[in-house]
Design a protein around this nucleic acid. Structure first.
Length: 882
RNA sequence: GGGCGCAUAGCUCAGCGGUAGAGCAUUACCUUCACACGGUAGGGGUCGCAGGUUCGAUCCCUGCUGCGCCCACCA
């Protein structure tokens, strides 16, 4: 006997263990089934499962379970990411608490600490994935820094280098002075601020009282100036081009150059050029062969290239001092407020400096070409399609990708330098040494590049590195390209674009055929969740409170295409109730001895009720199937919900009660078998979304050995039966009409009343007769009679149903005033509707141009409304006679 | 500055060229023998504003307002 209330906590662990132990999640590379593969977006190994994870993994698990049930050989590849910066930061912070910096430890010792930390806390997210019910093929779990993937990353880099797609260059990069590393454009967050614009005079060399005024937002960089640029069409400064001006304070002479960058309409039209500290100036500097003076050290403090008094100052302190000194020199003109955006590191939160360093770059613009093509020609499809635009926009403006990071945690770059700075790019030190030997003609000491790769450089090859690449494994042949990538839009650039570029380059094929972009989860007020706002919803807490199934159902039901979703706890609670409802329906079936019957044929049933529910189940199954095929998860959830609760529980089981308690043994047996059969279909269609409760009921209700998760998904479309539908739908409609009437008339539940059906067709009469006992019970009627005479209704409580009028003769019970009010209201409504319909139908243009079907529909509606009006009038008349 | 998206019931959201939908909340009634994490019946919306296309617009187009996001620039 099933317990009265479903206890998720007790069931979830047990069921998951069963699944995992039995190998139910495993793929079968040797099988002849059609393969289906999803790569998990590898979460940070030391991370924690947040609500966004819960959404994306619930969606993926739903897809994967569905495809498995459909008979595919499914691989859902698990794994975690080493997450360079994030992880290094966590460990550094822990060390900082003990007063240790990573430099105190040295690289080797520090890395040991990181591995220790990974070993200690790395299991958490994996455990949480299991809690969530994720059916990943665990024995295949990979880590972006395990041995095979390290080898893949080295080969990735060396191949790109040898093919000329990777190069080393001294360039301006976004430098994070806190983390002391380069970061990519994408890791820089622009924040709006109100800054200042300062105007200074630079003296023209050799002309004692001529000055040129420049405007700047960063006065402290004037020590790095190597030119002043003006437009060659700017009359104010034209004659200065080629002359020198003197930088205040350091009194260095720099040339005035003509450059397109200078816009006469902006500022003063004259721009100071600091090539080593500004991206635009860098370009100007290159055009004019200007020197590049780096005035900052790696921590963004002024270095030896500035006057003695400024050395070692922070940029902020230097700014104050420069302003004071410029004012003292009488070269200060004015200052203005200036709205501007300032770059901050998205990890460190400090101001990012453009800084001149040697870095490794991937020629992304070259790789992007094909990556654009495959989306244009549909070899990769975005769902929803609108995201293609975002993808294109970025790919068409893509910049070289700086892949080197000055961190310790990550894949160390496989480049070895000789004493003269010549470098050797090889997969390991032995190959590099061999090349060096050839190059130098003798053995020379080599040192490896200390830098590591951007995390995304390794996750960019995730779709094939996890399958064994660079070896040509059978998994690689079988599961690449993968079927779908499921992710949020926030990493389209970081990850999706890189995977497409690298997949096409190394595998000569797209990494996935579909990219499903789901919404971001926000809080109830629509704000992005973040720790600093304190509005983080912990999915595991919700899981503990309401059960994982309720959590998953909520997420799936919210996962409509299109927009961001807000997470509200009340919804989880509602779906927890749904899970309980299913549980209780199963319990009710069990109590009534509903068991699957040998030789049960859902096509050969005698009871109309059973034919009807089979047809409805088939239709629901079809809806869920279509919705999942189209990634319309909310529709799948809704179809299952509506059928299980609104159809099966609310109507079928209620209808079944009289049969279960009655003495028609044949009908009883058939209904028991049908109830069991339908309950099974409900478990099936809901299993991809709420796997735990369905699996539990699947095994408990019939004592089955075969797990639900491995059961075949059924195509029931030939069980849909319009005739069977119509009959019971009519009865349900009638019952609803009577209930509604009763309730509106304030008829006491205990009142015994007789219903007359006036003006019914022969078919309706038959139905009424056939279902009389059910109607009596569910509508709480004393008797249900047929009549063609209005006289039978002494009172007049009436509602129009189908072609007939339901009359409840209520003399003595009826509230005449209330009924009059109701009928008046109804009449008004009908008159209005008739007016609208007649207007439309009398419009020649409508009749001529609208589709015939629509016109016919409207005519029918008009006829119905008119008939209803007549009956309402009759009722009014009878009411008056009372 | 460029681009994208959103505005529908009190809340969170579906939907859609032809009777406005769900869940939650709310009201009334029901301790009915699976389930009060339940049942039945209701109330509540000129689908952001203004034009246009159309026989017909919540839906398509244009403009406006408000909100959000992305990218770029910022001397």
């Amino acid at each position: 006997m099933l317990e009265k209330v479903y206890d998720p906590a007790a069931v979830e662990t047990k069921i998951y263990e069963q699944w995992e132990k039995s190998g139910a999640f495993a793929c079968h590379p040797d099988s002849d089934k059609e393969p289906y593969c999803i790569m998990i977006p590898p979460p940070n190994v030391t991370g924690n499962l947040h609500i966004g994870h819960a959404l994306t993994f619930s969606i993926q698990d739903t897809l994967v379970r569905y495809q498995r049930m459909k008979g595919k050989d499914v691989l859902w590849q698990p794994g975690t990411d080493h997450a360079g910066i994030a992880t290094q930061m966590v460990v550094e912070r822990l060390l900082a608490k003990e007063g240790i910096s990573r430099h105190d430890l040295g690289r080797e010792k520090f890395l040991e600490k990181v591995w220790e930390w990974k070993a200690k806390s790395g299991g958490q997210i994996v455990g949480q994935l299991r809690r969530l019910g994720a059916s990943l093929d665990w024995p295949r779990e990979r880590f972006t820094m395990d041995e095979g993937l390290c080898r893949a990353v080295r080969q990735e880099f060396v191949t790109l280098y040898k093919d000329g797609l990777v190069y080393r260059a001294k360039r301006l990069v976004n430098w994070d002075p806190y983390l002391q590393t380069a970061v990519s454009d994408l890791e820089v967050e622009q924040r709006e601020t109100v800054g200042k614009m300062w105007y200074f005079k630079y003296a023209v060399e050799g002309e004692s009282d001529r000055f040129i005024t420049i405007a700047t937002t960063r006065p402290e960089t004037l020590f790095g100036d190597t030119a002043v640029a003006v437009s060659d069409e700017d009359e104010r400064y034209k004659d200065l081009i080629g002359k020198n001006v003197i930088i205040p304070i350091c009194n260095r002479a720099i040339p005035v150059v003509a450059d397109e960058h200078a816009d006469p309409t902006k500022g003063t039209g004259a721009v100071k050029i600091t090539p080593a500290h500004d991206f635009n100036d860098f370009e100007v500097g290159k055009r004019h062969n200007l020197p590049m003076i780096n005035i900052l050290d790696s921590t963004a403090h002024l270095n030896e290239n500035v006057p003695e008094a400024y050395r070692g100052l922070s940029t902020a302190d230097a700014r104050v001092k420069v302003l004071e000194e410029v004012k003292a020199l009488g070269l200060f003109v004015k200052e203005e407020d200036n709205p501007m955006t300032i770059p901050y590191g998205d990890r460190s939160g400090v101001v990012i400096e453009p800084w001149l360093t040697d870095q490794w770059f991937v020629d992304a613009p070259k790789l992007a070409k094909k990556a654009i093509e495959v989306v244009e020609d549909g070899r990769i499809q975005f769902v929803p399609k609108a995201w293609e635009k975002t993808y294109f926009e970025w790919m068409r403006n893509i910049q070289p990708w700086c892949v080197s990071r000055q961190l310790w945690w990550g894949h160390q770059i496989p480049v070895w330098y000789g004493p003269d700075g010549h470098y050797f790019v090889e997969e390991n030190v032995d190959l590099a040494q061999a090349e060096a030997d050839k190059y130098y003609g003798k053995r020379m000491e080599l040192t490896q590049d200390p830098d590591v790769f951007d995390t995304w450089f390794s996750s960019g090859i995730w779709p094939f590195s996890t399958l064994g690449w660079p070896d040509n494994t059978k998994e690689l042949q079988r599961y690449y390209p993968t079927n779908v990538l499921v992710t949020g839009f926030d990493i389209i650039f970081f990850w999706v674009a890189r995977m497409v570029m690298l997949g096409l380059y190394f595998m000569k094929d797209v990494p996935f055929r579909t990219v499903y972009i789901h919404a971001l989860v926000r809080d109830e007020q629509g704000r992005k969740m973040s720790k600093s706002k304190g509005n983080v919803v912990d999915p595991m807490v919700l899981g503990d409170k309401y059960g994982i199934d309720a959590l998953r159902f909520t997420l799936i039901a919210m996962a409509a295409q299109g927009r961001d979703v807000c997470m509200s706890e009340s919804r989880v609670e509602g779906y927890r109730n749904f899970v309980t409802k299913i549980w209780n329906a199963a319990r009710f079936c069990e109590m009534n001895e509903c068991k699957l019957a040998d030789g049960y044929d859902p096509k050969a049933l005698n009871q109309p009720l059973n034919r009807w529910i089979v047809s409805k189940a088939a239709a629901a199954m079809g809806k869920v199937t279509t919705a999942l095929d189209e990634y319309k998860f909310n529709e799948a959830a809704e179809a299952g919900y509506q059928f299980a609760w609104g159809t099966f529980c609310d109507w079928y089981l209620e209808f079944a009660k009289p049969l279960f308690f009655g003495d028609d043994e044949a009908a009883k047996a058939e209904t028991r078998a049908t109830a069991a059969w339908v309950l099974d279909r409900i478990l099936m269609m809901l299993h991809p979304i709420i796997p735990f409760v369905t699996e539990e009921l699947w095994s408990k209700t019939e004592n089955r050995k075969q797990m639900l998760m491995l059961t075949a998904w059924e195509d029931l479309h030939d069980l849909v039966n319009a005739e069977a539908d119509e009959e019971l739908d009519w009865v349900i409609g009638l019952i609803s009409a009577v209930r509604s009437l009763r309730s509106e008339m304030n008829i006491a539940p205990s009142a015994k009343i007789t219903m007359y059906l006036q003006g019914a067709t022969a078919e309706e009469a038959r139905r009424l007769d056939a279902f009389k006992p059910l109607i009596k019970t569910l509508a709480r009627l004393e008797t249900a009679e047929l009549s063609t005479s209005a006289d039978d209704a002494k009172g007049a409580a009436q509602t129009v149903f189908g072609t007939a009028a339901v009359l409840l003769p209520l003399a003595g019970v009826i509230d005449v005033a209330k009924e009059t009010e109701r009928l008046t209201k109804e009449k008004e409504k009908l008159t209005k509707e008739i007016g609208g319909l007649e207007g439309r139908l009398n419009n020649e243009a409508f009749v001529a141009k609208a589709p015939e079907k629509v016109v016919a529909e409207q005519r029918a509606r008009l006829a119905d409304a008119k008939a209803a009006l007549v009956k309402t009038d009759e009722a009014m008349a009878r009411l008056k006679a009372l």
